[in-house]
């Protein structure tokens, strides 16, 4: 079994995101236990696991949303605990259910994000992103007027705008229509090709299979597999990711 306590990163590239011994518990119940991971520039890491495996907690901890209880997080050379603001400036976080501001228009969300992250000459980049995510005709719509899918697209566009070193996406395609899914997938690949490290969690195994360079499978807060899809298949007799996933996380499912 290719079980490991963590992730060794992509060979040949220096990691831009480095997590060591990440630990988090809620009221004594461990949610994440000693998780290690590294992601290099231009790499897409897929975070897999059943419900309650600790995927969202891991992403929130890396994003600085949850205070670190144990372990360390380093983003683009900045330690999250010591240089929180600098680390967050290199990072973009898209939660699974983004909540735009009701009183701001779509265009203003991008304007606000640009100033928040100190993005200069953001107008052209914002225009391109609005086109890419099919929001160009909705620039004057208020946050309260957007559908679930539109909110998701806007959040992804906001994340892209600051040109971050690391993007964290929690269920990025939830709520998107087929065209939106295709657009987001293309955008994620392009983002990675521009040198951004992407960590995405999803239940959609086909998406992860198609997009991720490496996989990290969690179960009950522990890493039960870390490696490429080819390594996973080589270590297992099962041919499909779904079968491997079900076997690896069987213990978590029963809980």
């Amino acid at each position: 079994m290719a079980e490991s306590s963590g992730d060794s990163g992509a060979a040949g590239h220096p990691p831009v995101l480095r997590v060591r011994g990440l630990t988090r518990s809620y009221g004594g119940r461990p949610a994440v236990q000693g998780l290690d991971l590294e992601v290099a520039r231009g790499e897409v890491l897929g975070l897999l696991g059943p419900n309650g495996a600790g995927k969202t907690t891991t992403l929130r901890s890396i994003a600085g949303v949850l205070p670190l209880q144990g372990g360390s997080v380093e983003v683009a050379g900045c330690d999250l605990a010591r240089s929180e603001v600098e680390a967050k400036r290199s990072l973009a976080w898209v939660p699974d259910d983004p909540r735009p501001f009701d009183a701001l228009t779509v265009a203003e969300h991008l304007e606000f994000t640009a100033h928040l992250y100190g993005v200069e000459d953001h107008r052209e980049r914002a225009r391109v992103l609005l086109e890419r995510f099919e929001l160009a005709e909705r620039t004057s719509a208020l946050g309260s007027e957007l559908s679930r899918g539109m909110r998701q697209k806007l959040a992804i566009a906001q994340a892209w705008l600051s040109n971050p070193a690391v993007v964290l996406l929690d269920e990025p395609l939830a709520g998107l229509d087929p065209r939106g899914i295709r657009g987001a997938r293309t955008a994620i690949r392009e983002l990675a090709s521009e040198g951004t490290a992407v960590v995405l969690s999803s239940h959609q195994l086909d998406l992860v299979e198609a997009m991720a360079d490496r996989l990290l499978v969690l179960s009950r807060g522990r890493v039960v597999f870390s490696g490429t899809l080819a390594e996973l298949r080589a270590a297992r007799a099962e041919s499909s990711l779904e079968e491997v996933f079900l076997e690896l996380t069987a213990e978590g499912d029963e809980a």
Binding site: F101, D102, A103, L104, T105, E108, F112, H115, L116, Y117, G118, S140, A141, L142, S144, E145
Partner: peptide, 30 residues
């Protein structure tokens, strides 16, 4: 709630255009 007509009311960036100013602008606009 804010309706679509509210979008016509615009707020200036009176506290600067840095992160702090952006947040002040956001709250003022709200």
């Amino acid at each position: 709630g804010a309706d679509s007509g509210a979008a016509r009311r615009r707020m200036g960036w009176w506290a600067g255009r840095g992160p702090f100013g952006a947040l002040v602008w956001l709250r003022s606009t709200e």
